[in-house]
């Protein structure tokens, strides 16, 4: 008869194997970069933000799209600490490169590919994700089918490139093979001492789905080059009502 402790060990090991099969790999030196997400990282298996995987972001409106781009830029700056190049592929891009500097990225290290058709975006994202010389790939599009997401996931499992798919105003929230699904909404900023003016970017970060992890919601502020978790609930934060349909 095996003891309970031994059973637990076997289970843990099996879980580890399953994770590896699903694309979560053990943390190597290259991957031990800090995304600075702090408390959010605990939602992921192994308490680390999964690199070499596809993350899906959903923006229902323009305001959310800006917040999501900001959040992705913040994540990118962590991933690109040690240099590297990222590709930003999309249709109707509105991202303004100089703004990336505020999120700690040299905008000239990002190559933008501005396409017209969504089909080309998917093709280009897949090609880019297969290129292991890249650090990260951001794809901005509207729809992502399950089959396409599977292809992207297979591409990153080979190359270990981190992919971010930013979906603008998608028709439905279909199932995709991405490792996580996020929704970033803007939140009223706050300046200490109730001073007038607009403060640091602040977001309502919703981790709607995460494979083998626990979803959650946090309030995050970007200040002086890193994410900060906002602990105390200020009364002036107006929660974004789900009925609001525009930005």
């Amino acid at each position: 008869m095996e003891t309970g402790a031994a059973k637990k060990e076997i289970l843990a090991q099996l879980q580890k194997q399953i994770l590896a099969m699903q694309g979560f790999k053990t943390v190597s030196d290259k991957q031990s970069l800090k995304t600075g997400l702090g408390i959010i990282e605990q939602s992921f298996p192994g308490n680390t933000f999964p690199m070499g995987a596809i993350h899906e972001f959903i923006s229902p409106a323009q305001g959310e799209a800006a917040a999501t781009n900001g959040f992705i830029a913040g994540l990118l700056s962590g991933i690109m600490q040690k240099g590297g190049t990222a590709l930003w592929i999309g249709t109707r891009r509105t991202l303004f490169p100089p703004a990336l500097k505020a999120f700690g990225i040299e905008p000239d290290r990002i190559v933008f590919i501005d396409l017209i058709r969504e089909r080309d975006v998917l093709w280009a994202v897949e090609q880019a994700l297969k290129c292991d010389a890249l650090t990260a790939v951001v794809g901005e599009l509207k729809e992502l089918g399950f089959t396409e997401s599977r292809r992207l996931q297979l591409a990153v499992e080979e190359s270990k490139v981190t992919g971010f798919i930013h979906r603008h105003e998608p028709k439905g929230k279909n199932t995709v093979a991405c490792v996580s699904r996020w929704k970033i909404a803007p939140l009223s900023s706050d300046i200490a001492g109730n001073m007038p003016g607009v403060g640091h970017p602040r977001w309502d970060v919703n981790l709607l789905k995460v494979r083998n992890g626990t979803p959650g919601a946090w309030q995050i502020e970007w200040e002086s080059g890193s994410f900060h978790h906002i602990q105390s609930k200020q009364p002036n934060i107006v929660s974004i009502s789900s009925t609001r349909n525009t930005g």
Binding site: D114, D120, Q127
Partner: peptide, 19 residues
């Protein structure tokens, strides 16, 4: 990689920006 992309969708789609 960029050459491959340019070969399919045209080189005018690829941008890199400088201040």
């Amino acid at each position: 990689l960029l050459d491959r992309i340019a070969g399919k969708v045209g080189s005018e789609t690829i941008h890199r920006y400088l201040p």
